[in-house]
């Protein structure tokens, strides 16, 4: 039985179509990522799967249970962590944990093995009000609360948004260890670099899935050769690269431009020469392996054409 199966699910808010015929499946024990920018439909999809929102059309099953008909049974076996911190800020860390355990008729002791690794980090502050915790600690507490009833499936909506880079890495380490305990995890994130920590990812854009694959395969399937190009001035460089006849696409990526080229017609040295003739300084061209973000940009472009 699949942990999750989504069939042609659509949902609109008035005239805005937030999800367009999304279909995918998630295996038991998989760490599945929904990757895409804001407005891609990630939250809508997670809310439908967590039985908080009804789809306009299509069908979704969670652990083989229908998301509409069997919502009660689903709520007992999934853990959900909304994008916004939504625990009781006026209750302490310990009280929040006990409260959520008790409304599931569970006790903290029963699931302590599951949250142990995470809870130990916030245990020194257990009598502090949840509202007074730092951002990273709030996320850890929220994760503990979502795990307190030993769910078989965990939905996390942008858990790392607004969290510092170190805490982000720690958070993904926690997810990896939860996955090893057999929990299926569906996590959404706008950060493309986090995609590599997932078993499989769905790249989402404007309510649809561009591709569903393992991150490694997505990178392997990048259709072109990718170069990183640097040179001063950078802005003019981007425009000139886009005009270059052997360049397929060019995007600004921090301190360098990532350029997809027809490598059968040009070499890195040739491009470097071309650019030097155009009066660029400190020119540097080198071949790189594409990142998920490169693939996302490429897929977006293909999709538009």
């Amino acid at each position: 039985m699949k942990a999750l199966s989504v069939n042609n699910v659509s949902r609109s808010y008035g005239k805005v179509q937030a999800l367009k015929n999304v279909s995918f499946e998630v295996e038991q024990g998989e760490l599945f990522g929904l990757i895409g920018p804001d407005g891609a439909g990630k939250t809508t999809l997670i809310r439908i799967l967590a039985t908080l929102l009804l789809a306009d059309s299509g069908r979704a099953t969670v652990d083989g249970l229908d998301a509409v008909r069997d919502y009660r049974a689903i709520r007992r076996r999934v853990g959900y962590m909304p994008g916004r911190f939504s625990l009781y800020q006026d209750l302490s860390v310990e009280e929040n944990l006990n409260f959520f355990a008790s409304i599931f008729n569970a006790t903290v002791r029963e699931s302590y093995h599951l949250i142990q690794g995470i809870y130990r980090q916030i245990e020194p502050f257990k009598s502090r009000r949840a509202g007074k915790l730092s951002g990273g600690m709030k996320q850890k507490l929220a994760l503990c609360c979502a795990l307190i009833h030993k769910p078989s499936l965990l939905f996390l909506d942008e858990p790392t948004t607004g969290v510092d880079p170190v805490s982000r890495r720690e958070f993904w380490d926690m997810l990896a260890s939860l996955r090893q305990q057999g929990i299926t995890i569906v996590v959404s994130t706008p950060y493309m670099d986090e995609a590599l920590r997932c078993d499989r990812i769905a790249l989402m854009k404007e309510g649809g899935c561009l591709k569903i694959e393992t991150p490694q395969n997505i990178i392997r399937q990048f259709p072109h050769t990718l170069w990183s190009v640097q040179g001063d001035p950078m802005y003019r460089l981007l425009k000139d690269l886009r005009r270059h006849e052997d360049v397929i696409s060019s995007f600004a990526f921090g301190d360098a431009h990532h350029v997809a080229v027809r490598s059968e017609r040009i070499t890195t040295l040739q491009l470097e020469e071309n650019l030097k003739m155009l009066d660029y300084k400190n020119v540097e061209v080198k071949e790189i392996t594409p990142t998920v973000e490169d693939c996302y940009m490429q897929l977006t472009m293909d999709n538009e054409q």
Binding site: L52, R72, R75, P82, R84, S86, F104
Partner: peptide
């Protein structure tokens, strides 16, 4: 407004 109802809604309450 605090968003806590989201968390409560996925429970069997």
């Amino acid at each position: 407004e605090a968003g806590t109802i989201e968390q409560l809604n996925v429970t069997p309450v």
